[in-house]
Design a protein around this nucleic acid. Structure first.
Length: 126
DNA sequence: CGTGTGACTGACC
DNA sequence: AGGTCAGCCACAC
């Protein structure tokens, strides 16, 4: 599998993360059908994503619920802001994974198989 | 073509 | 709660 192909799958999965929720790099790797070891590649893929794609890259944090971008970089501040904008409590670059972790299977349980759920519809009020 | 470097993870201490 | 370590792999030099 080419790296380019992997990127495409990664972007595809990352785009599915509902507003107000987050996923870990490993989680995206798994959803994209990639080995767990590919976790590191996720960050690279997200960074390489075209801006016009409007990918919710900021909804991806590491397995500990921490923002993996080093503090001090503009991206770090931006990620915090965007997450809080969706009602996620970010404290010192860290959030509660138990609370905000996206669970695709639970998602399906609630909305039903094949049911499309538009997160943006409820992202505004809080 | 060899080496170093991360937007990582799980395991251990 | 923190710190370390090995495994991984695309990419830049």
């Amino acid at each position: 599998m080419s790296a380019n192909e992997s990127y495409r799958k990664i972007w595809q999965q990352a785009a599915l993360i509902p507003a107000g929720q987050v996923a870990s790099y490993g989680q995206i790797a798994k959803l994209a059908g990639l080995p767990r070891r590919a976790a590191r590649m996720i960050g690279r893929a997200l960074g390489a994503a075209p801006v016009e794609m409007q990918l919710p890259w900021y909804r991806v944090v590491n397995a500990q619920g921490k923002i993996s971008i080093p503090k001090g970089r503009p991206r770090f501040v931006q990620q915090c802001a965007l997450l809080e904008q969706e009602g996620i409590e970010v404290r010192d670059g860290q959030l509660d994974m138990d609370k905000y972790r996206w669970d695709p299977s639970l998602d399906e349980l609630i909305w039903g198989p094949g049911m499309l759920h538009d997160p943006s519809a409820e992202a505004g009020d809080n």
